[in-house]
Simulated scan of single mutants.
Amino acid sequence: MNDQTIAIIPARYASTRFPGKPLADMLGKPMIQRVYERVAGVVGRAVVATDDDRIRKAVEAFGGEVVMTSPLCSSGTERCREAFDKIGRGETIILNLQGDEPFIQAEQIGLLISAFDKPETDIATLAEAFAPDTAYRKLNNPNSPKIVTDHQGYALYFSRSVI
């Protein structure tokens, strides 16, 4: 476990595609709890960042750490930045791990953290290539973000559209 790593999990209730998603029941636990439990076992510290009192109460009910952020945050990244500014303890690696990824694996989080073993790494993200025979309907799914990288794996841009 890396004590210099904090995972901030942005979670908002007012999602445009699935309002209340962080509180969706997954076999008796809210989705945000499933994510938190996966993350908390891998990093030094996990914190849920939210602007919603219902999510705050749910996180506190399962014993998780939570910080309230402004409802004016325009993205999860902005929410993470505000949260870290409020509760950061000098951690050197800040992970923005999405509140709707209840199946994220410890190995994936570890892989992301290991990207920071290289001193030149300032930012990193997990990505997986689509198989050559991927159906167009899967590629066209706006719920699946796409990334274009250069030959060294550096992100050029992200899109929810087919690129």
Rank of each mutant, 00 (worst) to 15 (best):
residue 135 A to H: 13
residue 44 G to F: 05
residue 160 R to W: 06
residue 35 V to H: 07
residue 161 S to C: 10
residue 23 L to A: 08
residue 91 E to W: 09
residue 141 N to Q: 10
residue 23 L to E: 04
residue 4 Q to R: 13
residue 34 R to F: 04
residue 44 G to I: 09
residue 90 G to N: 08
residue 103 F to V: 05
residue 67 V to P: 06
residue 32 I to C: 07
residue 73 C to G: 02
residue 38 R to W: 02
residue 130 F to Q: 11
residue 160 R to F: 03
residue 55 I to E: 04
residue 104 I to E: 00
residue 123 I to Q: 12
residue 100 D to M: 04
residue 100 D to V: 01
residue 147 I to F: 11
residue 29 K to R: 14
residue 110 G to R: 11
residue 46 A to S: 13
residue 112 L to Y: 08
residue 33 Q to M: 09
residue 86 K to S: 10
residue 105 Q to K: 13
residue 59 V to C: 06
residue 38 R to N: 14
residue 71 P to L: 11
residue 114 S to H: 14
residue 130 F to A: 14
residue 95 L to W: 02
residue 58 A to G: 10
residue 37 E to T: 03
residue 38 R to L: 03
residue 59 V to S: 00
residue 84 F to T: 00
residue 113 I to P: 03
residue 55 I to M: 09
residue 113 I to V: 15
residue 7 A to M: 09
residue 7 A to E: 01
residue 99 G to A: 04
residue 45 R to C: 00
residue 100 D to A: 00
residue 149 T to N: 00
residue 21 K to F: 10
residue 140 N to I: 01
residue 149 T to V: 15
residue 133 D to S: 14
residue 10 P to D: 02
residue 126 L to P: 07
residue 127 A to I: 13
residue 129 A to Q: 11
residue 35 V to L: 07
residue 121 T to Y: 10
residue 104 I to H: 04
residue 111 L to M: 14
residue 32 I to S: 00
residue 57 K to Y: 01
residue 31 M to T: 06
residue 78 E to W: 07
residue 68 M to K: 10
residue 1 M to C: 12
residue 83 A to L: 06
residue 79 R to N: 12
residue 49 A to T: 09
residue 115 A to G: 04
residue 37 E to Q: 13
residue 4 Q to P: 02
residue 78 E to S: 12
residue 102 P to W: 07
residue 134 T to Y: 01
residue 7 A to G: 02
residue 26 M to K: 04
residue 66 V to E: 05
residue 63 G to M: 00
residue 1 M to Q: 12
residue 103 F to A: 01
residue 54 R to H: 13
residue 98 Q to V: 05
residue 28 G to K: 12
residue 153 G to A: 12
residue 58 A to I: 08
residue 144 S to V: 15
residue 157 Y to G: 03
residue 50 T to C: 01
residue 67 V to S: 06
residue 46 A to V: 04
residue 141 N to A: 13
residue 149 T to I: 15
residue 35 V to P: 09
residue 44 G to D: 03
residue 114 S to L: 03
residue 51 D to W: 09
residue 46 A to G: 08
residue 75 S to C: 11
residue 158 F to M: 12
residue 135 A to Y: 09
residue 96 N to C: 15
residue 155 A to T: 14
residue 112 L to K: 11
residue 8 I to Y: 03
residue 20 G to F: 08
residue 52 D to V: 06
residue 100 D to T: 08
residue 92 T to N: 05
residue 42 V to A: 07
residue 149 T to D: 02
residue 62 F to P: 05
residue 28 G to C: 13
residue 66 V to G: 01
residue 146 K to D: 04
residue 67 V to D: 03
